[in-house]
């Protein structure tokens, strides 16, 4: 058993089940998943297509209802919350980075980044000031008034990261953040995400099947057929703290 100090839990998932469809058409996506993510770490969920990675990510993020089990995110029990409270929780505590960036093409970068702040009730002026500052931090000074279509894929993903971080959420959810990027750009994005995860009060969960970026993970959670098969660190050592 490891003797190193274990960081507090950010996400705690116990026996979570989720089935799509009903009757003969029912497809169980999660079959009693147990899973933890810690504060200050970048954790990757990996596995073959259809193993339930994205479903697990969706239920952790509070964007998909689950059938059974318990999920706690930074001490808040998602399973006990009403839907509108889950939405409120997500608004304040979760940042999203998507595979296809999901930037709104008709808005400028500043406007895209300001969206989470506006949803949280910030004024337009404050939101745009913070958004511009966040874009500067992401290495995109002076690009705030560009539309996403005028940026490269890597730059667009940086804008998406800025949008995910601008309202200072504690949990960052990333769905295949590098799959639409070339190798070098993907590496830069992962460097950025690893830096983001170093914040002691934050946790970054990445779903990916891009094995080129596995090296950026503090821990890897391998899934197969709706279950967690193995949790291990970079050296392949099992994580007994689970």
């Amino acid at each position: 058993m490891s003797t190193t100090t274990v960081a507090p839990l950010a996400v705690h998932v116990r026996a979570v089940t989720k089935t799509f469809g009903q009757g003969e058409a029912a497809v169980p996506a999660l079959k009693g998943v147990d899973f933890n993510a810690r504060q200050g770490e970048l954790l990757m969920i990996v596995g073959p297509s259809g193993c339930g990675k994205t479903t697990l990510l969706s239920v952790i993020a509070g964007t998909l209802n689950f059938d059974g089990g318990e999920i706690e995110v930074f001490g808040s029990s998602l399973h006990a919350m009403k839907p509108r409270h889950v939405t409120e929780f997500r608004k304040r505590n979760v940042g999203f980075i998507f595979q296809q960036f999901n930037l709104i093409p008709t808005l400028t970068c500043i406007e895209n980044v300001s969206v989470p702040l506006l949803i949280n009730g910030a004024s337009r002026r404050v939101a745009e000031q913070k958004a511009e500052a966040m874009l500067d931090q992401m290495g995109l000074p002076g690009r705030g008034h560009d539309r996403p279509a005028n940026l490269s894929g890597g730059q667009q993903q940086r804008v998406a990261i800025a949008r995910a971080l601008v309202h200072e959420p504690r949990l960052i959810i990333c769905d295949e953040p590098t799959s639409a990027l070339d190798k070098d750009t993907g590496s830069h994005i992962m460097d950025l995400l690893r830096d983001v995860a170093r914040h002691p009060d934050r946790s970054v969960i990445v779903v990916t099947h891009d094995n080129r970026i596995f090296k950026y993970a503090d821990r890897l959670t391998e899934m197969e057929d709706g279950r967690v098969q193995r949790v291990h660190d970079q050296a392949g050592n099992p994580d007994f703290s689970e």
């Binding site: 993020a61 964007t63 509108r84 939405t87 409120e88 997500r90 608004k91 304040r92 979760v94 999203f96 998507f98 999901n102 709104i104 969206v115 989470p116 949803i119 949280n120």
Partner: peptide, 15 residues
């Protein structure tokens, strides 16, 4: 056509 973006807004906490 904007469903994906509206879905993203919903994910980000837009009620």
């Amino acid at each position: 056509e904007n469903l994906r973006h509206l879905g993203a807004l919903k994910a980000m906490g837009a009620s």
